[in-house]
Amino acid sequence: MNDHLELTLLNQKSEVARLQDQLETFVRPHRVAARVLHDLQLALEEHLANILTHGYDDKLEHRIRACVQLSATDLRVEVADDGHPFNPLERPAPDLSKSIDERPIGGLGIHMMRKSLDDMEYRRVDGKNILVMIKRI
């Protein structure tokens, strides 16, 4: 079993749902647990929200490339964007011990990515952030 899907997105919020729908369609004919798909979609949602919110200072159109790959052992998505250098693996974990009234409202997204995925790999190549999000099947 080895199959893949490639998609180029624009830096617009509506594009995230398009990727999520395509990912669902791609996975449907294969035997992938609903939980695996859910967790990967959650991580993707968070990562793309971060790129769209913090990645760019200009108002220009940017292209974000997503490559989904299904192997015998895992489902992975590689996302490449030309936004500011940003390595989510270097972000500190939020303090979950504070009470609901004291907790800062930010920083949850990357924490959810860490919790949902089995592995993440980051590299910066040719002015691009490349993040691989891996979920074992």
Partner: peptide, 20 residues
């Protein structure tokens, strides 16, 4: 709901606090 992202949690948290 099949999915809840951090933006959704932030909305719930913010207005939970405000109402409380």
């Amino acid at each position: 709901a099949t999915f809840l992202c951090s933006a959704g949690i932030r909305v719930l948290l913010q207005y939970h606090r405000q109402m409380k």
